Simulated assay, not measured.
Amino acid sequence: MRTPLPLIISFVLAITACLTVQAQSSEPASTRAFFNPQVSSRDVALNQSVTVSFTTLRPQVEDIDPLSVVLTALNSPAVRDDWRVWGEPRVEVDPKIGTLRSQFVLLPRQPGNLTIPDIPVRWLRGNQVARFGQVTVHEHLAHGARTISLPDDYHRIHGYTWGMSGEDVIQRSGISLQEDESPQRFRFAPRPGLSLEVRSGRLAVGRIEAPGLPFQQARGSFHERWGDTMPGSRSDAAMWMLGWIRIEARAEGDGTIVELTHEGIEERITRGEVQNKIFSLLEEGSGSTPSSPETAPQAPSRSEAPDDQTETPTLPRQDDTESSPAAPPSAFDPHAEFERQLRRTPDPDQR
């Protein structure tokens, strides 16, 4: 008597299911918990980037764009005090399992233990937040497999401290301003080939022109001084980031041009212009006295700081002037959320 074919198929499927369950139960927890946030490194040099990624379920809340949520969280003033966002964040859907993967790259602004910004996971129910902990940033630069000391360019240029007030620059250099210049904005050349620029009353930019020095010949020396370049550098141009200091070098004819910019001063100028041109109009008549770019809080110069202070000027932290916010939502545990979704009882129509 032959066994019916449907019975044989059912028997084979039952054995296969048992073997599958046994194989899954023997997997390590790290294999199943693939939703955990990932940080490329917890220990970096000042010129090294940190790549952060995390995976969640697909959006559960309508009209919430995950990319917009990530961008908003990374662009807050408190985050910009510690980090520079490099490139554009990415949010991608896995075509096979349908999960959502978010990734962004950060550059440290200063040495120390810096906290990676929290990301509110507003596209999932439960008012959750993804937290990533801290990264230790060392006060040196990376060049290949070795480290090099921070150059003096991190603190000053040609003896002038970054963020030095325009009045102090004028007094020290002994220059006379032109009729169309003011201590708030002017440019001067302390020596041939070098020009320094004061913006909104603070030393913010330096420019060096080296005619007759090919960029390709000088590039090796640049690496020895400033370490590894940022991604995207070309054969005729390169960029370095030393915390707040952006250094750009490029070929110009038969020579080389190098520009150094303190991005903290640029950030302060932008905030001052927004306050002066927009917020002051909203606050006019309310009795408050809005600050302008000239009167906005400035980064301390070396002449205003204690004698033993040598750190480059930094922006005031957002949480120093604002009251403490309400208690944040509970930390986001993607794996727990995934397990919770699996345990949900399906609707009768879906059974």
Results as ranks from 00 to 15, higher is better:
S195K: 10
S195H: 05
S195L: 12
L196Y: 03
L196H: 05
E197K: 14
V198C: 01
V198L: 03
V198P: 07
V198Q: 08
R199Q: 14
R199I: 03
S200V: 03
S200C: 12
G201N: 08
G201Y: 00
G201T: 00
G201H: 02
G201V: 00
R202G: 11
L203M: 09
L203V: 02
A204E: 13
A204G: 01
V205A: 09
V205D: 10
V205I: 09
V205S: 13
G206W: 02
G206D: 02
G206F: 04
G206K: 07
R207E: 11
R207Y: 00
I208M: 09
I208S: 11
I208V: 04
I208E: 13
E209K: 10
E209S: 12
E209R: 14
E209C: 03
A210P: 05
A210H: 01
A210L: 11
P211H: 11
G212P: 01
L213Q: 14
L213F: 05
L213E: 08
L213K: 10
L213D: 11
P214E: 08
P214K: 10
P214M: 04
P214Q: 09
F215Y: 15
F215N: 15
F215H: 14
F215D: 13
Q216C: 06
Q216M: 01
Q217M: 10
Q217R: 12
Q217Y: 09
A218T: 02
A218F: 03
A218L: 03
R219D: 09
G220K: 05
G220L: 04
G220V: 01
S221V: 01
S221A: 15
F222G: 15
F222C: 14
F222Q: 13
F222N: 13
F222T: 01
H223I: 00
H223W: 05
H223M: 14
E224C: 12
E224H: 14
E224M: 08
E224W: 03
R225P: 05
R225D: 07
R225N: 13
W226Y: 15
W226V: 06
W226P: 11
G227K: 08
G227T: 02
G227Y: 04
G227D: 11
D228I: 00
D228E: 03
D228C: 10
D228T: 02
D228W: 06
T229M: 09
T229N: 11
T229F: 02
T229P: 04
T229Y: 03
T229K: 08
M230L: 15
M230K: 14
P231D: 07
P231L: 01
G232A: 06
G232C: 04
S233W: 00
S233T: 05
S233K: 05
S235I: 01
S235Q: 07
D236V: 00
D236I: 00
D236E: 04
D236R: 08
D236M: 02
A237D: 15
A237M: 09
A237E: 14
A237L: 03
A237Q: 14
A238V: 03
A238D: 06
A238L: 06
A238C: 08
W240K: 13
M241I: 01
M241P: 07
M241W: 10
M241V: 02
L242F: 03
L242V: 02
G243D: 12
W244Q: 15
I245R: 10
I245L: 12
I245G: 14
I245T: 12
I245H: 10
R246N: 06
I247K: 12
I247N: 07
I247M: 07
